[in-house]
């Protein structure tokens, strides 16, 4: 077998193993379940609140939250990368032939797999609890599929870039603040049209809004389009913006990752460990 192909296969099995690990240990299993349970509880209590036009807040929020979750894969990716630099996992990959390739494939598989699992954990009970979703046709699921695929292509490379740029778990905290801000203005919990126009524009520059919109377009009845900007699902624009982020991420990520990997050495890992220990002690 060609060594590069062998590394792809190793990467795939690596991702599967890591995915299994994240569903077989208590702490991580809790984090997989906690968020969906909280969200579902909130949605259950606001299931009768209407947004006007007969649209229920709960049914609008479910697809939006699915979209947001997918976008949060970016944060997960970035955190995992930072953690793997700190404990030497990345250096281990560097010391292995084609190890970086295997490592990245594994990371994409485990993060994407984790996202899909999280989506299912939220969506399946959601379908039972929340009324007013239009999920009968295959079209809906086709849209879910392409929005998710494109959304991950847009956000995961970005996450890898962020994870490479910030040297420590501490720096990662800084990444979360703007992401939380974006979540607030991206039309997840209430329609983006309720915001001042300049905020609308900010939201539309980033993938979270478009992932939410794409999911709503897949799972809500056609009438729900009335509360969206321009009364349209804007699929073309969705593809445009997410595609642009994906292109940007895929162009920048290899360069940044390579630069970061080049700097990794035993002493840099040891140095970060000492720093971390000093912080704790």
């Amino acid at each position: 077998m060609n060594p590069g192909t062998a590394a792809l296969r190793a990467g795939w099995s690596r991702g599967v193993i890591e995915l299994r690990q994240s569903f077989t240990n208590g702490a991580e299993l809790l984090s997989h379940l906690l968020w969906p349970v909280l969200m579902l509880t909130a949605m259950y209590f606001m299931r009768d609140t209407t947004l006007g036009g007969g649209l229920l807040l709960g049914s609008m929020a479910l697809p939006s939250i699915l979209g947001m979750n997918a976008a949060l894969g970016m944060v997960t990716m970035s955190q995992l990368l930072t953690a793997d630099r700190e404990d030497g996992t990345l250096l281990r990959a560097k010391a292995t032939p084609h190890g970086m390739r295997g490592y990245l494939v594994g990371k994409v598989v485990s993060v994407a797999g984790g996202l899909l699992a999280d989506l299912a954990i939220l969506l399946l009970p959601g379908l039972l609890l929340i009324d007013g979703l239009a999920v009968g046709s295959p079209d809906s699921w086709l849209t879910v599929a392409w929005v998710l695929a494109l959304g991950m292509a847009a956000t995961l490379p970005l996450g890898a870039v962020l994870g490479s740029v910030f040297p420590s778990a501490r720096g990662q905290g800084l990444v979360q603040v703007p992401v939380l801000g974006l979540m607030a203005i991206s039309g997840i919990f209430y329609p983006v049209t309720a915001l001042p126009e300049w905020l609308e524009w900010v939201a539309q520059a980033f993938p979270i809004y478009w992932l939410g919109l794409g999911m709503r377009s897949a799972l809500l009845p056609d009438a729900a389009v009335d509360i969206e900007i321009g009364d349209s699902w804007r699929h073309l624009e969705t593809v445009g913006v997410l595609g642009a982020w994906a292109a940007l991420g895929l162009a920048v990520a290899p360069v940044v990752l390579r630069r970061m990997a080049r700097r990794e050495s035993g002493s840099s890992v040891a140095e970060r460990r000492e720093k971390a220990l000093r912080r704790v002690g």
Partner: peptide
């Protein structure tokens, strides 16, 4: 390569 300190792959 065996470096001075590894802590990687703790869950494996």
């Amino acid at each position: 390569v065996v470096l001075q300190s590894w802590r990687d792959h703790g869950k494996w």
